[in-house]
Design a protein around this nucleic acid. Structure first.
Lengths: 247, 247
DNA sequence: TCTACTTGTCTATATCAATAGACGAATTTT
DNA sequence: AAAATTCGTCTATTGATATAGACAAGTAGA
C-alpha cells in the first residue's frame, strides 16, 4: 500500500482539495509510483484512498489532463502520459546542455528578451561592479525534449559582453556565447537554491499550472581568473526537475 | 513601487486568493521588503496593490498572524515579527550547527523517533549494503533560535552504528553521534535537491501552515575512506531557509 | 451476449472564498 | 479637541469548492 493511503488531506487551508490531490498524483507519477501498468487506479479507488468524493478526484484528474500529465479513456482507465523528472547536476562545471545529455535528446535554449540596463545593487555586488554600471540582461528559456525545463534571468557586464544577446540567440548556448566573447572556460562559483510558488509570467513560459512550485537557483559563474562573468536566477519547474549537488 | 504592484493574482486555480497573498507577503518579508519601518502597508493599500478586496487581505494577514510572522495593532498598523531566511550551506563539509553558526545563537537537534528496520531498495543502494540488511532510522528535527528549521529522516547501517539513536538523543548532533561510533570525520558525497508541498506530518513538526513548501535535500555522507555512513532526506521550510552551494 | 468495471454527465445541496459597504475602536497627527 | 489613519466587526451577495446520488457510455472478460 503506498504512503498516500493513510495520510489524510488538509482541509480549509486555502488550497482546494482537488489541487492537493492533483499535486500528490503528479508527485506519485514523478517518483514512479504507477509504473506497473502505466495507469492510475480507478477514480473510486482514489476517492477512497484519499478519503474524498469521486467528483473531487475527477477535478484533480481534469487539471492533470490539462497539463498533459494524464490521458483518460472512457471505460478503460486513466493513463499516464509523462513520467520521471530530469536530474540537473550542479557543480563547478555546471552547463545546461551537458547536464541533461544522458536524459534528453533535444536540449536547447531560447532567448525571450534582452535589455541593456543599469546594475541593481544585488547584481552589482554579484558581478563586482559599481552600482548603476551598465549590464546586459537576458531572459531565456531552456527546453529538453520539447518540454520547458527552466526559465532564467542572467546579467552580464555590458562592456565586456556587448554582443552576448545575439551570440546566445544564434547558438542557444551560454557556453558558446561566452566563448564568442573570449571566455574559453568558466566555473560555477556559488549557487543558492530556494523554492516558492511560480509567478504568473513563469507559469506561462514554463507551461505550468497555477500554484506550481519552482526551484530557484541564484548562481554566479566566473572565468578561470576568478572574474565574474554571469550572474543568474534560474527557475526550474519543481515537478519536472531535481537538482543534484556532487561533492 | 515594489514588483508586487503590477503582477495580478491568479484566480480560479484551486489556491485561494488569501493564501496567494499570504505567500507573497511572507516572501516579501523574507527578502527584506518591509525593513524600512518594520511595518506592513495598511490593509487598504495592500488591497489596492494586489487588486483585491480588503477582506481578502485581512484573511491573508490573519493566516500570517497565526504563523507568528505578523503582529497587528489596532489603530497603529501591522508589524513584522520575524524577518530573514537562514542560509544553509551545502558543501563537502556540510554540518548543520556549523552552517548556521553566524546566523543563529541556538542551534540544536531533537530526536523525534528511531527504529531498527530492514533497508529499502533505495536506502540499500545508497548505503552500499544488501537489500533487507538491518538499518537504523532516525527521525530528527533541527531548530535555530527556537524555531524549527528542518525535519530529517536518516538511515545508518545497523551493525556499525548500533547506538547512534542514544548518541544523537544526548548530544543533539550527528557529528558527535558519529564520532562516538569511530567516525572522526565525514564528507558530503552527494546532495539532490527538490521542492514540493509539505506533507501533514512535516507541517506539524515544522510548525508550517498547510500548503507550505519544503525544500527536500537527499544526501549521502561518507567517511574519509569513502564508505557510506549516513543516508538522509531533509525537509527544510522553504520560507525560512535557502540552500547555498559553494563551488 | 451478458456482466462487471470504468469514465462521463447530470441534478441537488452545503460550505468556503471573495466582494461590497458600513461603522466601531484604538491610535496618531493636526 | 478634532481630524485623519488604521485595524476590527458586522451584514449581505455571488461564485467556487466539495459532497451525494443516479445513470449513461464505453471497454474488457466470462
Amino acid at each position: 500500500m503506498p504512503a498516500n493511503a493513510v495520510r489524510p488531506m488538509e482541509r480549509k487551508t486555502g488550497i482546494a482539495l482537488w489541487r492537493q490531490v492533483a499535486d500528490r498524483i503528479r508527485q506519485g507519477i514523478g517518483s514512479g509510483e504507477f509504473d506497473g501498468d502505466g495507469r492510475l487506479p480507478p477514480e473510486t479507488a482514489l476517492a477512497e484512498r484519499f478519503g474524498i468524493n469521486r467528483h473531487t478526484v475527477r477535478s484533480a484528474i481534469a487539471a492533470l489532463v490539462q497539463e498533459g500529465v494524464l490521458r483518460p479513456e472512457q471505460g478503460r482507465g486513466t493513463f499516464i502520459q509523462r513520467r520521471r523528472r530530469f536530474t540537473y547536476p550542479i557543480s563547478a562545471r555546471t552547463r545546461f546542455s551537458e547536464g541533461l545529455r544522458d536524459q534528453a535528446r533535444d536540449r536547447r535554449g531560447h532567448l525571450l528578451a534582452h535589455a541593456r540596463e543599469t546594475a541593481s545593487p544585488r547584481v552589482a555586488e554579484a558581478l563586482g561592479i559599481a552600482e548603476d554600471d551598465p549590464v546586459i540582461r537576458l531572459e531565456t528559456l531552456s527546453e529538453a525534449d520539447g518540454r520547458p525545463v527552466s526559465r532564467a534571468t542572467s546579467w552580464f557586464q555590458a562592456e565586456r559582453f556587448s554582443g552576448i544577446a545575439d551570440a546566445f540567440a544564434s547558438s542557444g548556448s551560454i557556453t558558446v556565447a561566452l566563448r564568442d566573447h573570449g571566455v574559453a572556460d568558466y566555473l560555477r562559483k556559488s549557487t543558492v537554491v530556494s523554492a516558492r510558488h511560480a509567478e504568473s509570467a513563469d507559469l506561462a513560459d514554463l507551461k505550468l499550472a497555477p500554484g506550481a512550485i519552482v526551484l530557484v537557483a541564484v548562481a554566479l559563474n566566473v572565468d578561470p581568473e576568478g572574474r565574474p562573468v554571469q550572474f543568474s536566477e534560474t527557475r526550474f519547474a519543481a515537478d519536472r526537475v531535481e537538482l543534484s549537488v556532487s561533492g
